[in-house]
Design a protein around this nucleic acid. Structure first.
Length: 862
RNA sequence: GGGUGUGUAGCUCAGUUGGUUAGAGCACUACGUUCACAUCGUAGGGGUCACAGGUUCAAGUCCUGUCACACCCACCA
């Protein structure tokens, strides 16, 4: 399909141009990856799949466009580009959006309701409607499909050159399969295991909660100062705590090793008030001398620090909080709940069992007061407490069975892999390395959620109907993808589901990163290629997810195939608010990407994105898009001007114009271009597209402001083939140089050029200009530019129009440069408006323009 | 508290390995512009390169310290 336009309009109509380009590129598959070419001839990108949970942010446009510029450069430099696009649509963000959008909530207990149509509900004052798991998943699929169509449209409007045939979503059957394969591989290698472990738990929603959904809230509470008697002595220590209801779960008392007040107690035991549990006083850096009373209790689990401490202590777990947020009915004298006086302890605890945490706290304070353990009445404080962002009650730590990937034993390897990868900017590698060094937890990949990749796992039930968690039944590779809630493990029938001696599904889904960490593998699968393997060439991403996306992808590549996932990571910066804070959602929504595209045009928005360097956070500056629009306009007008000249030139039908560039000034001009082309390529080689744009743009404005003025009159002479050929070369070259940045306007102009325009090929498949071996002396060019600027300056200083003729002028120059200037006297006369015979030359020490006399009478005649 | 950056003109940012008089765009001022382009052109004003020391013939650039800001992490008895 040829381009639908052959000549430029007199006025530029950007929306029309963009529409023409979009359909032309799509019809001709311009950006299609060619899977017949070798890996060496392919540039492979691991595109970040944006989270589909609402609208695209201008930050997306910013960083994704930077990658597109790189991709377009590589394509024009002769490579086929493997440039996939994906949507990250599984996981919590999607569930949350669906809950709010349709005002529904998933209740796995409910049966499926066929024909249920979720509807968008504007205000969510009404209570949420509970729907079955399957209905909920269908609602997720419905909304993500709609959101993805919107995203796709914006990305096409901005001219990103993805191969839309290589499109994937992280909830697709193919992605689920890859993700489950990954799980099974890690399971078979012994890297993943089922561990009973405390996790943050929302008692209202009855679900584990991910770190990302947690927020701190300043909450009013009380400090309780409690006497803990030392076993076998009259002494006691006073402990300040905000959570006295955790006394029954106390496992240790800690103080700082250097704290002289408590050193004498280390190794001794206290008896926990009310429950008479002997608990050791141990030194620990975890305690701080000047906080509270300097000595604290560790319980399972009052907060995250308790969890960390418990894990390294090896002490038994005392779980007292149930999943409903009420105190469990435990018995002292049994298991971990040791007591010197079990009967008394049980009498006390009986008054607490079944109460909510808040009720239990009030009750235990009462008991402590009655029994004389309160050192003083509770003191009110305000402190930060962790909440689930949608929850109303504080998060509790509840132990549950979760799948963990062992990473802590692979730190060295992970660091080594990080060093094999080139990070741009380089300091991002330090960030990665510091993160790996500080790693103190394994990776919990299971979530008690619904819209995600299910674990391909079932558990056998014993005669009592209790699951055997020690020997999970893992799906066979050839059966993937599986949904264990629907599919049946080998050797069982559906009738045995949930029955004694039958089986039960693992109801968890995977953390979304467990799937995103496989984007290279998922993309390769979507691209149906056997030419590509890890490592890819580049991974573009932002710096906030080095510790997640980059890290997990490196970890998975290491565990699966002992390789790095990509050779280089290109880290983009953030768009900041004018107050230099990370741009907030409210701001981002006011300035939507589509609004900017409509206001400035895609090329101008791209210009803005490409002006920023990698890894540098930039304040949002709309002015730069206006600047981009000027450039686009200038490209259009300068091209139109040159096309007019060429139309009237004897060169019009010459396909190869370069041999006609013969005049010294034109040769020098070309040499200037050549130097710039070399610079631009050098910058691109290190992904410094912004610096490349800068040198190209600078030369282009010089071309318009000076060069065109110098050559103007001469170019109107149809016999001056050198002038016309030079202009053809320059326009042709600039279009290709600007093509990665401004693909729309350059394509339109290129397709409408009056020479060599028979083929229907896109500009974006032409060769990016490479520096030739041209090395003409550019001094004559510089000298003429200088003379032109001196004459302009003289006229400006005299406050008269640039059209004023010069009736006398003397140019002095060193002897060896003088002849070259005499050779181009016509050009000098043309650009300066010098009347015939007025231009004089003289040998001088340096180039100098003197004795300028302007013909003011010419002006007054008007 | 740990880590990583940033601090250059009114604003947004360049400034490569130290090397003339520190740059660009926008904004501002003046002048100009029928002949590709007012989405234009020419010229101009504007900087103690956060601060303090140091190395050097020479520091925006290298070293040390201080301050301010941002991001990530940890802490919050």
């Amino acid at each position: 399909m040829p381009y639908s336009k052959k000549t430029l309009d007199t006025r530029m109509n950007l929306p029309e141009i963009e529409d023409r380009c979009k359909s032309y590129w799509a019809e001709n598959n311009v950006y299609r990856y060619d899977n017949t070419r070798s890996r060496e001839e392919t540039f492979v990108i691991d595109t970040p799949p944006p989270t589909v949970s609402g609208s695209l942010h201008i930050g997306h446009i910013f960083s994704y466009t930077q990658t597109d510029v790189v991709a377009r450069y590589q394509r024009m430099s002769g490579k086929t580009v493997f440039y996939p696009i994906g949507w990250d649509d599984n996981g919590l963000p999607t569930e949350r959006r669906v809950q709010n959008y349709f005002n529904i909530a998933c209740n796995p207990e409910l049966p499926y309701e066929a024909g249920f149509e979720p509807r968008h509900i504007e205000n969510d004052k009404t209570p949420r409607q509970d729907v079955s798991r399957k209905n909920f998943i269908e609602a997720c699929e419905k909304l993500t499909a709609a959101d993805e169509a919107v995203f796709e449209n914006v990305f096409k409007n901005i001219g990103h050159s993805y191969d839309w045939n290589i499109k994937y979503t992280t909830i697709s059957p193919e992605a689920i399969q890859k993700s489950q394969e990954s799980f099974i591989d890690l399971y078979e290698k012994g890297f993943v295991s089922l561990v009973e472990s405390p996790t943050m738990w929302d008692v209202t929603f009855q679900s584990a909660v991910a770190q990302a959904e947690v927020e701190d809230r300043e909450t009013a509470g009380f400090f309780h100062d409690i006497h803990f008697p030392i076993e076998g002595s009259d002494e006691y220590v006073t402990i300040a705590t905000t959570r006295p209801e955790f006394l029954p779960a106390c496992i240790a008392i800690v103080a700082h090793p250097d704290d002289e007040r408590y050193q004498k107690f280390f190794g001794k035991k206290v008896l926990v008030p009310l429950f008479d549990t002997p608990v050791e006083i141990v030194p620990s850096e975890h305690a701080e001398k000047d906080k509270g009373t300097g000595i604290m209790m560790v319980c399972t689990f009052g907060d995250a620090a308790d969890v960390a401490w418990w894990k390294q202590s090896g002490l038994p777990l005392k779980q007292i909080v149930g999943r409903d947020g009420r105190l469990l009915n435990i018995k002292f004298g049994e298991g971990a709940f040791v007591s010197k006086n079990p009967d008394k302890a049980n009498e006390m605890y009986q008054q607490l069992a079944g109460l909510s945490m808040k009720q239990a706290r009030a009750k235990i304070v009462e008991l402590l007061r009655e029994n004389g353990f309160l050192a003083q009445e509770p003191r009110p404080i305000v402190h930060a407490v962790k909440f689930y962002e949608k929850g109303t009650l504080p998060l509790e730590f509840v132990t549950s069975r979760q799948w963990f990937v062992k990473l802590q034993d692979k730190k060295e390897k992970l660091i080594e892999m990080g060093r094999k990868i080139k990070w741009k900017p380089a300091h991002m590698q330090t960030r990665y390395e510091e993160w790996v060094k500080g790693l103190n937890q394994d990776w919990c990949i299971s979530r008690q959620r619904f819209f995600g990749v299910p674990f391909p796992v079932w558990y056998a039930l014993d005669a009592e109907g209790e699951p055997d968690y020690t020997r999970p039944i893992v799906a066979k590779l050839n059966a993937l993808p599986v949904d264990p809630m629907v599919d049946v493990p080998e050797g069982y029938t559906e009738a045995k589901r949930g029955k004694p001696n039958g089986f039960v599904a693992d109801a968890n889904v995977m953390d979304t990163w467990a799937t995103s960490a496989l984007t290279p593998q998922i993309a390769m699968n979507a691209g149906k290629t056997d030419k590509i393997n890890l490592p890819f060439d580049i991974r573009p991403q932002a710096h906030d997810i080095i510790r997640t996306w980059a890290f997990y992808t490196i970890a998975k590549a290491l565990m699966h195939s002992n390789t790095i996932p990509w050779n280089e990571v290109l880290v983009s910066g953030f768009i900041l608010d004018p107050d230099r804070k990370k741009m907030s959602k409210s701001k981002g929504n006011v300035v939507t990407p589509q609004h900017l595209l409509d206001t400035y045009g895609a090329d101008s928005v791209r210009y803005w994105a490409a002006s920023a360097r990698l890894g540098v956070d930039t304040a949002f500056e709309e002015q730069i898009m206006a600047q981009g629009k000027k450039l686009v306009n200038k490209l259009f007008n300068a091209s139109r001007f040159v096309f007019n000249i060429v139309e009237n030139s004897a060169l019009k039908n010459e396909k190869n114009y370069t041999p006609f560039i013969t005049k010294p000034l034109d040769m020098a001009w070309l040499s200037k271009m050549n130097a710039m082309i070399k610079q631009a390529n050098d910058y691109f080689a290190t992904y410094d597209y912004a610096a490349a744009l800068e040198v190209i743009e600078k030369r282009f404005w010089d071309f318009c402001d000076n060069d065109l003025e110098i050559i103007k009159k001469r170019a109107y002479d149809i016999n001056d083939k050198s002038a016309a050929a030079t202009l053809m070369f320059c326009i042709d070259t600039f279009l290709k140089l600007f093509a990665p940045f401004c693909p729309f306007i350059t394509e339109e102009i290129y397709q409408c050029r009056p020479w060599g325009n028979e083929s229907a090929e896109s500009l974006h498949l032409q060769a990016f200009p490479k520096a030739g071996d041209m090395s003409a002396d550019t001094r004559v060019y510089d000298n003429v530019s200088f003379i032109a600027s001196e004459i302009r300056k003289a006229k400006t200083t005299a406050n008269i129009t640039q059209r004023t003729p010069v009736k006398q002028i003397l140019i002095k120059a060193p002897e060896k440069e003088l002849q070259a200037l005499k050779d181009v006297a016509d050009d000098i006369e043309n650009v300066g408006g010098i009347v015939p015979g007025a231009l004089k030359f003289e040998v001088g020490e340096a180039l100098e323009v003197t004795n300028i006399e302007l013909d003011l009478s010419a002006l007054s005649e008007n």
